[in-house]
Structures are given as C-alpha cells and as structure tokens.
Amino acid sequence: MRDKLLLLVYILSLIYLSYLSNISVLLISSFFLLLFLFFAPIKNKLGLLKHSLFSFFLFSFVISFSYLLLELSSGNREGIEYFLMINLRSFGMTLLTFLFLRITNLYKALDFSRTLTFLLIIATSNILTYKRLLKDFRDALESRNMGKTTRQTSFTFIKRLSLFFFDKSVYTSREVYQTMKSRGFCDD
C-alpha cells in the first residue's frame, strides 16, 4: 500500500510541478525537494543529486540555453524568465522522479495492473542487460585502443552502439514477451 500511495503522491506532485509557472514558487518547491533529499533515509544522496543534475543538464539546460542565446541575440530579454522557469520546473521534476525511484518499490506500486508490471519487467530487464553490455563495449574499446581515441573511431563506435542497442532491444523485447506468454502472463 505504501508504494501505491507514493506513486499517487508522485503523480500528483508531477502534475503540480508541470503547472507551476511562478519562479518563486518553483524555487521554493526545489528547495523543499532538496530538503527532503537531505533528510530522507536513503543511501548515496550525493550520487542521486549528481544523477538528477546530470540528466537535467543534458536534456533541459543545454537545449533551452541555446534557445535563450537565440532570443538574446535578437534583443529579446523576456527569454531569461522563461529560461529560468523551464529549467527550475525541469530540475524539480527530475529530482522528484529520481527520489521516487529510490524510495519506492515500483513492482509493488504497479502490481494493480498486469500490463504495467509486464512493461516494467521488460524495461528493467533491458536496462540491466544494456548496462552490462555498455560497460563491456567501453571496456573492449579501451582494451583495444592504443592511443587517443580519434573522432572517426568515436563516431564509428557510437554508430555501432546505437545500431546494436536498437537491434538488441527489439530482439530482447520479443524474447521477454514470449517468455512471459509461455508463463501464462499474457492473455492474448
């Protein structure tokens, strides 16, 4: 029950944050989230904060910052406020999600729906497999690399990784689906 309640709180907080546009309120929300992180009984708090900041930086800050530069170059100063609002909102939602994932057992939270549990199993299985494979790919490149990685090598490597993981995800999803089906999980 605890996990289902946390899921409900998470969804409501997410909706609340996505509607907020007042920068002061967004700042206060972020502060409370950080306060919660500080007092919550979880391990590696700094690691969680780092992950949140990195994800926020990569997916929100970098993109919105380039828009801000375009706005500023055309003499529009109003863009700064919008930039702050979007990024504070984005940071809050990211931190909230990482916190939720850390304190909740997702399997228990979603066990009211067979389909959602099924999707979660596929996603988790893929994530764990990919994590291990990605590590092996990087290790193999490091092992074979005898100098500075050239731009060409990096490009070829990233291209290969993308194709490999795309193929792998299609294949793994099919396999997991068949496995679950054979265990009587899917009714169709």
Binding site: F137, S143, R144, T156, R160
Partner: peptide, 23 residues
C-alpha cells in the same frame, strides 16, 4: 606504457559483439 601494455596484453571478451564496431 599504455601503447606497450595494450599491445602485449590483449583480451577476448565473452561476448564477441562488444569488441566489433568497424564497418
């Protein structure tokens, strides 16, 4: 040292796919 070591000590990974990336 890196070049010398990487040339002298090589490793075959369990999954060959992870070692291959060239066209």
């Amino acid at each position: 040292i890196n070049k010398w070591f990487r040339r002298e000590v090589v490793m075959l990974f369990q999954t060959p796919d992870v070692m291959l990336f060239n066209p």
